[in-house]
């Protein structure tokens, strides 16, 4: 049985962030090795400023109340938790070039790599998830 979980984060909204970081922290807390490849809008989820103000999908803003009521942790908290649990963040070099971003725009401790970096990691991972 593989002890690795590989995640592709390709979308940048608040809901996307929860899907990615909940699965990632739960897997890491279950003694799995976890890596997330952040590409295109997904980079938003680890962008220092961007991750502070992730948007809900249009028309779903009323869920804000539900998030507060259920005491859901904020995304920056989950990001910190994921890092503490040893989740590896890989930012997509190509997207960074397109968007004019540098490693300093993101939370500390990330790696930067291309598609092959992720594929190499994911080749023996199970499951591989895409959000």
């Amino acid at each position: 049985m593989s002890n690795k979980v590989a995640i592709i984060a390709a979308n940048g909204g608040l809901f996307d962030a929860y899907k990615v970081f909940n699965i990632a922290t739960a897997a890491a807390a279950s003694d799995k090795e976890v890596a997330i490849f952040f590409t295109f809008e997904g980079l938003n989820l680890i962008h220092k400023q961007g991750m502070q103000a992730l948007e809900m999908p249009a028309g779903k803003e009323h869920f804000a109340e539900g998030f507060a009521k259920a005491q859901i942790p904020a995304i920056p908290e989950l990001v910190e938790m994921a890092i503490e649990l040893g989740v590896k963040f890989i930012a997509c070099q190509m997207t960074m070039d397109v968007m004019g971003l540098t490693k300093e725009d993101f939370v500390d401790g990330i790696e930067v790599g291309g598609a092959v970096t992720f594929l190499e990691y994911a080749k023996d991972a199970a499951p591989t998830l895409t959000f």
Binding site: N22, T25, A26, A29, D31, Q71, I72, P73, M81, L85
Partner: peptide, 14 residues
């Protein structure tokens, strides 16, 4: 108590 998924698991692990 009061914590939502995945925090109970993360706390348990710790």
């Amino acid at each position: 108590k009061g914590l939502a998924c995945p925090m109970p698991i993360v706390k348990t692990k710790k």
